[in-house]
Design a binder for these strands. Sequence first.
DNA 1: ATAAACTTTCAAAAAGTTTTGAAAGTTTAA
DNA 2: TTAAACTTTCAAAACTTTTTGAAAGTTTAT
Lengths: 168, 168
Amino acid sequence: MQLPEAKQKFIETWGKLGSEWGINRTMAQVHALLLVTPDALTTEQVMEELSISRGNANMTLRDLIGWGLVEKQLRPGERKEYFYADKDIWNIARQVAKERRKRELEPVLKTLEELIQVKGDKNDPEFKTFHKSMTDINKMSKNADRMLDTMLQADESWFWGSIFKMFK
Amino acid sequence: MQLPEAKQKFIETWGKLGSEWGINRTMAQVHALLLVTPDALTTEQVMEELSISRGNANMTLRDLIGWGLVEKQLRPGERKEYFYADKDIWNIARQVAKERRKRELEPVLKTLEELIQVKGDKNDPEFKTFHKSMTDINKMSKNADRMLDTMLQADESWFWGSIFKMFK
DNA sequence: ATAAACTTTCAAAAAGTTTTGAAAGTTTAA
DNA sequence: TTAAACTTTCAAAACTTTTTGAAAGTTTAT
């Protein structure tokens, strides 16, 4: 397999993976393209490489910036904006975990707290089952939340730091 | 808030969460319904409670069985099939992690192995960036894979067992 | 102030996904 | 074997999400 074909395949794979995990396919593809490109690209180049429209490229790049995965670069003497992706995969994973925690885990935790407060007849199996499920899910989500929090600070954490080293 | 309303809200929340994570909304909703229902339900009851069609209910229940989240129960002397969801949230999480690992992580690892083999000019920045990204992503995915594997066996593992207890 | 270079917006269209429901299939009891 | 009870299938319809592209907006240089 040659480089251009391999790039194509990676972009396709990354896009598919993204969409399976609730990330827009094009966004994952643009990210993949930037990941295998040594230097920053313009909107124009992204449009060209992936055959997507200007509007789509622009929106997707803005989203990627919102996720903290891509940065805008300005070059002295040029009007065009260049887009560059951080290539450190550990930073990428942290960034994604951080965003999803904020965007998805937090709202669910809020709803669960509310649902746990619902009062009912302690002898009603319906109520008992409901209440137990809510309590259990809440507990586990809170744990996941705390765990993520700890892991996201792994740089500074002796404990997780040493655990991750085990997997290097 | 009263129980029926609370159930409704939970079903809605769980469905939304599911779709944000690449799981079909209805599937997540049916699962949520079964999670807050003490006993097994028939296809008919699921259709009724969620106002969905027979075909949809049937397919969704089959999918849930495929994910290992729901079991079919047969009652002596009855023709109908009953569906019951395991309510142990830790089992649920493990099951989902296990399935997604198999369905998504494994194929990506396979593709990455292939892309890492691609040969090229070691002085070409294009090639260098591509190769480094592939190697890094592969490393991290393999780690995630091994970590999941370890965690999925936590029951039998002294090490992770004791780590999880910290978060109880 | 003007025009060129570039970015952003958004309504409409296309693409993709999910749902429906009627028909076909299967199993069981008598 | 037949009919009733139940389950499964799948093409078409409904719905959701994504993409397009032309128009509007912004910035910069002269």
